[in-house]
Write a protein that binds this DNA or RNA. Structure first.
Lengths: 259, 259
DNA sequence: ACATGTGAAGGCCTTCACAGCA
DNA sequence: TGCTGTGAAGGCCTTCACATGT
């Protein structure tokens, strides 16, 4: 089982805090972020889940985990986990497992979470307000640097500790506050224009909640989150299950935890 | 370009409404949902985007689209689109393109959106309220059938047109209203318990917004949406770009629209 | 002529089997 | 002995080239 020892609750803050892990002397090569390139996209997509599972383990005072324990907590197979981690380096101890704090640091470093990322959110509707108040921003390398809305009635109000600013001030504030990640929580109709404004202001990473595909220059990354898409995929599988049940015939889908 | 003719605005409602498309007599085989099985997961994940793009086209009065036009709107390659659609059937016309309304109907049918899915949302925090008010539920085969929260102060209040119910009534209401899809918008701490309650009530499709991997029986589908994960992935690519820029060296990442 | 539909090729990712090391 | 790290195998998905049909 998990090896626990440190009292639960004193969670090490990997992001932002400079870590105290000492590299064993027998491993003279220290990993800087530039030495390990070519991490597959599929692996990058799973690293945040590993980090979250490690954070949970640390909260419970766990010091060391095996690939099997960590994989279970992350909803993947142990071999998948080990292959993924092998792309970062050799941070495990053979015959033992992984040091929770050390592995969390290395994943944080790989993901770029050892620095703090200022995020701007545009669109203060229901979703935008929920995002602005989201506690997940505080933990792990992100903070809400600015909020924007085109509605004059909303400008000047506060959401949490942050003032809602007019769109006209976006270029200046994005530059002044070093915003590098923009979140679009506007209706679909204004999303492309908002995106263009963000890109012109220097933002090259965009998280898009509006239901459309944004056009951006090749050096800009866009990730989209869409509730409708998720529901549609669930409906597809649900339909399969209901058909199979109705016909008393097993389609053999069998999706378990994860995936 | 797009062939347009029908006046914009009169959008055909594929979901819920029974459609009026007449199958050409030369195609005697009508496609029922059970005839075309084995649609790859990767394809299923893209079908909602095709449907959205078709919906936009229909809104603009477009009657027919080529695979190239539709692919551009959906952020994929034309060959990808045609291969995906080939898994549903042959709904295009060679030398011409696809009938917008007909293709939308076929995709809706494949996804199971020709029937209405009652959705229950648990957790009426900022996110839960935003989801309950989300207009995307209305369009396309879903409706909010019930809202739940454990906080007695929230129970009895209305969000939109729907009353917030106590958790104790969940099993009864889920059964009475035929809920088959559950949305979890609670904190991580109560998510597993809520999930167990939903599954015990008969829900076999779950959309999880809480930051943890849920344990469910093998016949239950879970999809997770996590803001932190999306931000982490963006931070990874952003770090790459900043390193590349700092060293005046092109890493050649080049992520464009989509992907 | 032109755009769809599809077998085949290629590439990426997952899984396996076992080598490597504490 | 036990668990990590990894080359090799296998499977899924994307892309290509072209056959097919209007």
């Amino acid at each position: 089982m998990f090896e626990r020892s440190r009292p639960a609750g004193d969670r090490p803050s990997w992001a932002a805090a400079r870590l105290t892990w000492k590299e064993p002397v027998s491993h003279p090569m220290s990993a800087d972020p530039t030495s390990r390139r070519d991490i597959p996209d599929a692996t990058v997509a799973r690293l945040p889940e590993y980090l979250r599972a490690l954070s949970d383990a640390a909260d419970r005072g766990v010091l060391s985990v095996s690939s099997e324990e960590l994989a279970t907590a992350a909803g993947v197979r142990p071999t998948q986990l080990r292959k993924d981690l092998s792309h970062l380096g050799s941070y495990g101890i053979r015959g033992v497992g992984y040091d929770v704090e050390h592995l969390a640091l290395e994943i944080s470093r790989a993901l770029g979470l050892t620095q703090d990322w200022p995020v701007a959110i545009v669109g203060m509707g229901n979703l935008g307000r929920a995002l602005a108040a989201y506690s997940g921003f505080a933990t792990g390398g992100f903070h809400v640097a600015a909020l924007f809305d085109e509605d004059a009635a909303l400008v000047g109000t506060r959401i949490g500790d942050v003032l809602v600013e007019p769109m006209a001030d976006l270029p200046r504030l994005v530059a002044d506050r070093g915003v590098s990640i923009g979140v679009i929580a506007t209706p679909a109709g204004s999303a492309q224009q908002v995106c263009d404004t963000l890109v012109r202001a220097g933002v090259r990473s965009v998280l898009n909640f509006a239901p459309l595909v944004l056009s951006v220059p090749g050096d800009v990354d866009v990730r989209r989150v869409d509730l409708s898409t998720e529901l549609h995929v669930l409906a597809f599988h649900e339909q399969r299950k209901q058909l199979a049940a109705g016909q008393g015939q097993d389609v053999g889908h069998g999706v378990g935890v994860g995936r």
